[in-house]
């Protein structure tokens, strides 16, 4: 089985928002809605401040509460991978998955069904990277299979210090942030 992961380097990300634009263009995300977004996390006390910039999205968790909670099976894990997808013809728009996601990664489309980041599954199955990773001007976003020890993402996770978001929620996310 392929275990896709995204590794995002917070040290080289400048928060330009190109990943957001690329995603909206590639996936025709309607105006006012976003599948990925930038978080600028400033901490410390002036003048000793520290800033971390993160490009965030659905974490394609290995234990996804949105899939567990979905009453119709519309939220599902794509066969053979760990990519979490939504089948819009099964979605009732009950919004349980939105409440179940601790990362607030899901939203309602104007048509009424739920949508979110798909790791650009339509590109990945052709061997391409997700749109956000392919356009990043500082090469901060890497994408690949962590089950393959020679993949870029595996190497980065071996070499660098990283963190995942809200590990205590038990969702086992697959988006890693290099710190």
């Amino acid at each position: 089985m392929k275990k896709y992961a995204m590794v995002i380097d917070t040290k080289s990300c400048v928060g330009c928002g190109d990943c957001v634009i690329a995603c909206k263009t590639e996936n025709l995300v309607p105006e006012g809605l976003h599948r990925d977004w930038i978080v600028e996390d400033v901490s410390g006390k002036f003048p000793n401040l520290n800033m971390e910039i993160r490009s965030e999205r659905c974490n394609h968790c290995s234990n996804p509460p949105c899939v567990t909670y979905c009453p119709t099976g519309a939220s599902y894990i794509n066969r053979g991978t760990n990519i979490v997808l939504v089948n819009k013809s099964k979605c009732t728009g009950c919004k349980a998955c939105i409440a179940a996601c601790p990362y607030d990664a899901r939203f309602i489309m104007p048509e009424g069904y739920v949508s979110k980041c798909t790791f650009c599954e339509h590109r990945v199955k052709k061997g391409l990277s997700p749109a956000c990773a392919s356009v990043c001007p500082t090469h901060s976003i890497d994408f690949g299979d962590v089950n393959e020890s020679v993949s870029n993402v595996s190497k980065l996770l071996r070499k660098r210090k990283y963190k995942i978001l809200i590990p205590e929620a038990g969702t086992r996310p697959n988006v890693y942030y290099l710190i």
């Binding site: 976003h34 977004w37 978080v39 919004k95 939105i98 607030d104 899901r106 939203f107």
Partner: peptide, 23 residues
């Protein structure tokens, strides 16, 4: 310790800044 967090570009309807999916 003061902490400031700024979010940009999420702004999803009913989700940001606070979840408000159920009225």
């Amino acid at each position: 310790m003061m902490e400031v967090t700024i979010t940009t570009n999420k702004m999803n309807h009913l989700v940001d800044p606070n979840l408000h999916i159920w009225g």
